[in-house]
């Protein structure tokens, strides 16, 4: 009989995430996938900068907190010297798709045998809601108060699409956490990514579409609907690369 409980990798402490934020759900899914694979003691969480850094307060397993955008580089140093560990980086969109673009693309291109979990909420949440590389066209932020204008700021970066053009990655997939189906798919995707890593198959990338009620200036329910009508049509969920399925 399945027992619904708090994952052991998540500390029994009040959440520092804002009410309705999907970050805490994303962290929980990661923890559950690792525990289901029996890797709780072996996992090493490379914690990035941004709201993702709140993991420092909750993650009960081994972790290394690193500089903004550099998680894939630090993870490279960890995994190359300790290949037996389950290593994953947990990064937000500013961290991964702006300041850390060189690090994520290069780690993916080298086929580093670790997993990157990418929480995409289309904003810099920790610093107060500035435009992110993934902010949607027309979306209002504190640095695009009339909405993101592609004439001056370009277009939202599609990281799964970019990374899936590389030869080395073995599994690249995007899931939206605003529906039970999306959550179930994400759970399976995370587990598959971690399993592939432990089988030594290579680089795996899981993008999780999340929200930011505080900085989107919406109620949690409104953010879930906004994701249906705006986020998901642009960042289409799905499996972008799966070498195992192709084989």
């Amino acid at each position: 009989m399945a027992v619904y409980k708090r994952p052991e990798l998540i500390a029994d402490a009040p959440s520092g995430y804002c009410p309705g934020c999907l970050h805490s759900l994303a962290t929980k899914l990661v923890a559950e996938a690792i525990e289901e694979l029996g890797q709780a003691d072996n996992a090493l969480n490379v914690i990035s900068v941004g709201c993702s850094a709140l993991n420092i307060l909750y993650w009960s397993g081994d972790f290394l907190s690193v500089a903004h955008g550099r998680a894939p580089a630090a993870a490279t140093g960890i995994k190359r010297t300790n290949p037996e560990r389950l290593v994953f980086a947990y990064q937000g969109d500013g961290d991964l798709a702006a300041i850390g673009l060189a690090e994520i693309m290069s780690a993916a291109n080298r086929g580093e045998n670790f997993t990157v979990v990418f929480a995409n909420n289309q904003t810099y949440g920790m610093t107060g809601g500035q435009m992110a590389p993934t902010t949607l066209i027309g979306q209002k932020t504190t640095t695009t108060v009339y909405g993101r204008d592609p004439q001056t700021t370009g277009y939202p970066m599609k990281m799964c699409e970019l990374i899936s053009t590389l030869e080395a990655p073995v599994y690249v997939a995007r899931f939206a956490l605003n529906s039970p189906k999306g959550v179930n798919d994400a759970r399976k995707g995370l587990k598959k990514a971690f399993r592939l890593q432990m089988e030594g198959k290579g680089f795996t990338f899981i993008e999780l579409l999340t929200n930011c009620p505080t900085n989107w200036k919406m109620t949690p329910l409104q953010t879930l609907e906004y994701m249906n009508t705006n986020t998901i049509p642009y960042f289409k969920p799905g499996v972008y690369k799966d070498k195992e399925a192709q084989a």
Partner: peptide
């Protein structure tokens, strides 16, 4: 041992940060 040619000096020193954290 392991050698990695980093994509930049920024990445390289952060790779060292990761490896050093493992006690290597």
């Amino acid at each position: 041992g392991a050698y990695v040619q980093g994509e930049s000096e920024v990445a390289s020193v952060n790779m060292v940060y990761g490896a050093a954290a493992m006690g290597t």
